[in-house]
Design a protein around this nucleic acid. Sequence first.
DNA 1: CAATATTTTGACCGGCTGGTAAAGATTGCA
DNA 2: TGCAATCTTTACCAGCCGGTCAAAATATTG
Lengths: 214, 214
Amino acid sequence: MKARAAGTQRRTRIQQENEERILDAALKVFSARGFSGSTIDEVAEAAGMSKPNLLYYFRTKEAIHRALIERVLDTWLDPLRSFDAEGDPVSEIRSYIRRKIEMARDYPRESRLFANEILEGAPRIEDALKGPLKELVDAKAQVIRQWQRDGKLARCDPYHLIFSIWATTQHYADFDAQVRAVLGPDRYNDGRFEDAARFLDLLFIEGLRPRPAQ
Amino acid sequence: MKARAAGTQRRTRIQQENEERILDAALKVFSARGFSGSTIDEVAEAAGMSKPNLLYYFRTKEAIHRALIERVLDTWLDPLRSFDAEGDPVSEIRSYIRRKIEMARDYPRESRLFANEILEGAPRIEDALKGPLKELVDAKAQVIRQWQRDGKLARCDPYHLIFSIWATTQHYADFDAQVRAVLGPDRYNDGRFEDAARFLDLLFIEGLRPRPAQ
DNA sequence: CAATATTTTGACCGGCTGGTAAAGATTGCA
DNA sequence: TGCAATCTTTACCAGCCGGTCAAAATATTG
């Protein structure tokens, strides 16, 4: 045992590979069954290794979860970060929605991982929510407020605006089972995300009141 | 053992009371920790009775869950049912949103129970989703289409419209932990549902594009 | 190649969990 | 009141689950 005691040491090739395999497996398992619904054995099997071997890399089930959240959180917040104060409000919101829909399509497991965690009361990511996430949202809320003062966007509560974008887009990942059941075999196809994006575009920009222009 | 074999028999007063106590407790526990995260003991304790006694009324953990879902489903679908084809589209949508927000406020546990179930892939309520729910949504989608043909509502995909109402309103129950973290101690108060309702009203009816009228 | 550090494994454990058995307490009805 | 039916409790169990241990296998390094 030469390295590895304090955590910042150089990591072996095998270590890197295995930790990655484990986190991939954990994402698959946790997002499908939830944290408490999953067993270490399942994760180990999905990672193609024995349970004691997995526990050699992450000493507890919680440690796996922590590492996983940490790894995924940045990616997850990225779209909101690129919300640009300089851009045109309407097209900024448009492209934010579009990116979020693409993420629901391409990374549904990540979305479900967070959904599960938050549903359980977010005990393991409370700090991340109250810290980095809140600060980011606060900052973007200011941007939105400025847009509104400049008359470039309808006046509304910026927090609820952000919530509504999260809700409508992540819905397609988190509640996929319901979407599938309701749309039925015909409508539930690859085009559904395109349809969703088109609908949300209309909803957020124009609203649903009928207009002569139509 | 005189009654109770086939299920439809008259139920004792004690039976009725205890089954109700158990389902109340189960709603509390399952909605907070998810089905697999909960134990029968927790439910029994919340119901104020011993585990074997609870198992006298519901023979398995799954049976509790089934009964609970069945009991809650009707209430849950009620607002959508009262969507009225004869009414004015804009005010029908308005009042649907308002009712759903009120339900998120007054029955968050019911919302989370379903959210949990659907996140896990809806194994125990798949039939209900594909049957009654889908039929109801299909019917209401027709109503919406008719409104659109009559020029009383902007043309858009009615299914995604319904999804977006579900998503935005239930968000406040299902992801309450996140809403609380982001709004912070100041903004997270009883008024948040009122704020949400006001925002959603604007969003769904008018959209966010700035208008001279403002 | 030897010595050392890292990785993997099989065998095991204590506590929890869903569920059972059976006897005792209570209730309701003739 | 007496008796059957219903309800409750105590004691228990088998299997699972998170986690440990020590030893064996493999990699790395000088």
